[in-house]
Simulated scan of single mutants.
Amino acid sequence: MKIGELGRVTGTPVETIRYYEREGLLAAQARTEGNFRIYDASHVERLSFIRHCRSLDMALDEVRILLRFKDAPGENCGDVNTLLDAHIGHVAARIRELRALERQLRSLRERCHDARDAAHCGILNELSQPPRQGASNEGGHVHGVHGGARARNAGK
């Protein structure tokens, strides 16, 4: 099958497939005389595995490690367990950060109950204040929440 069909079968955009090839997650395919890459069921399986890992918010480096174990089925999977435990820890930390962010946003929302002119909007006025030094996440700013998953998973 050609790359477009591989994309349709796995629900993966063609550009993402090419990206995974550039990153070494999928082997670059030999080309036909017509310069088309040809893929088979093993590529569907590997790409599906990658997509499943990515749907669990695993970083490309984590996927790379898991693929190494998948490619060496006789290896002990203790490091796979360790990797997953670490990933669970990252997810739990992000959940805590997101809950703190939610509390902060709810607190900010409480600053303006009624629609009024923007000059007297409690939300806009609070956002205009410099961040409080030494404030907890409750009243301060939560850094890294938006950048956490996106930075770890840049590039699809």
Score class of each variant (00 low, 15 high):
Arg109Thr: 14
Asp79Pro: 01
Asn137Glu: 15
Ala28Ser: 11
His141Ser: 10
Leu127Tyr: 06
Arg31Ile: 01
Asp61Met: 02
Ala119Cys: 03
Pro130Met: 07
Pro13Trp: 10
Gly148Met: 14
Glu102Ala: 12
Gly34Trp: 05
Arg132Val: 15
Gly4Tyr: 06
Gly89Gln: 09
Ala151Ile: 06
Ile50His: 03
Arg68Asn: 09
Asp85Ile: 01
Thr32Ala: 12
Gly148Cys: 14
Leu60Ile: 15
Met58Ser: 01
Leu60Tyr: 08
Ala135Cys: 10
Arg18Lys: 09
Ile95His: 09
Ile3His: 09
Val142Tyr: 02
Asn153Met: 11
Gln104Met: 13
Ile123Lys: 09
Arg54Phe: 07
Thr10Gln: 02
Gln133Asn: 12
Gly78Leu: 07
Leu66Ile: 03
Ile50Gly: 00
Gly155Glu: 08
Glu75Asn: 12
Met1Leu: 14
Ser107Thr: 11
Leu98Met: 01
Leu6Glu: 04
Val80Asn: 07
Leu83Cys: 01
Ser128Gly: 11
Asn125Gln: 15
Arg51Ser: 01
Tyr19Gly: 04
Thr10Leu: 03
Ala100Phe: 04
Gln129Ser: 04
Asp114Thr: 13
Leu108Met: 09
Leu84Ala: 04
His52Asp: 02
Arg132Asn: 07
Ala27Gly: 05
Arg96Asp: 15
Val91Ser: 06
Ala151Ser: 12
Ala30Thr: 01
Ser136Arg: 10
Thr82Trp: 02
Arg68Asp: 13
Ala30Glu: 10
Glu126Pro: 00
Asp85Trp: 04
Gly74Trp: 15
Asn137Phe: 05
Gly147Leu: 15
Gln104Pro: 01
Glu21His: 06
Arg106Thr: 13
